[in-house]
């Protein structure tokens, strides 16, 4: 009788054994692609204001649309950094990478508060849609810091198809979409430069 009870206990303990869930963390900005910023002391500073994100991006799971008006937030594939910080870093890297008259600076950097221009970016959507595309929809405003006047406005809506399965590829495509947004911002900054509104 004692042996029977011992066997049942061992079976129960064996049933409790389970493999821990495997978590995957992703980084939007690829640190391997970092390159040195060109040094130009005469560049006009543009302060990047905190990004405005939709509520469903204010969490760590990657988001995928599984049906119209229905999203799936992954519990295993997570952002290694908050999406707001990742997007800011990606924008800084992309915009400052070109040899432009302007330099985009994070608002937390010293001396950025005195920048004559401000860049305000609102991300409306950044997700994997039901048709296996990366959808990025964003708007941005270039502001005059002194007069609180809007100098330029812009809107970007890009759709990049996924060429491979998996969240890793999807994150890479998201980074490409952010690069498209950065180039559009660069283009608007260049119009400021050409129209002579820069310093």
């Amino acid at each position: 009788m004692t042996r029977c009870w011992t066997g049942l206990l061992l079976l129960a303990l064996a049933g409790c054994g389970s493999a821990p869930p495997s978590l995957e963390y992703y980084l939007l900005d690829n640190t391997g692609a970092a390159q040195a910023l060109p040094v130009n002391a005469n560049r006009t500073a543009v302060s990047l204001l905190p990004l405005l994100l939709p509520d469903y991006l204010r969490q760590d799971g990657l988001v995928m649309q599984v049906a119209p008006h229905k999203l799936h937030v992954s519990r295993r594939h997570l952002w290694a950094q908050s999406l707001a910080s990742s997007l800011s870093m990606a924008l800084l890297r992309d915009v400052n990478g070109s040899d432009s008259q302007y330099v985009l600076r994070n608002l937390a950097e010293p001396g950025t508060a005195e920048a004559p221009y401000q860049l305000k970016v609102q991300i409306l959507h950044l997700l994997i849609d039901q048709q296996s595309n990366i959808q990025l929809e964003a708007r941005y405003w270039l502001l005059d810091s002194n007069e609180s006047k809007t100098l330029r406005t812009g809107a970007v809506q890009s759709s990049l198809p996924l060429e491979e399965d998996g969240y890793g590829h999807a994150v890479a495509k998201m980074r490409e979409a952010v690069a498209i947004l950065s180039r559009d911002i660069q283009a608007q900054l260049s119009t400021l430069e050409t129209s002579g509104q820069g310093l």
Partner: peptide, 29 residues
């Protein structure tokens, strides 16, 4: 956070375990 989410959806999974099957994005086509 993942543990809490998992417990929230399947509280018995902490004892009985089980493979977590989650949808993943697929390539176009």
């Amino acid at each position: 956070q993942p543990l809490l989410q998992q417990l929230n959806q399947n509280p018995n999974r902490l004892i009985f375990g089980g493979a977590v099957k989650e949808r993943e994005p697929q390539a176009k086509g």
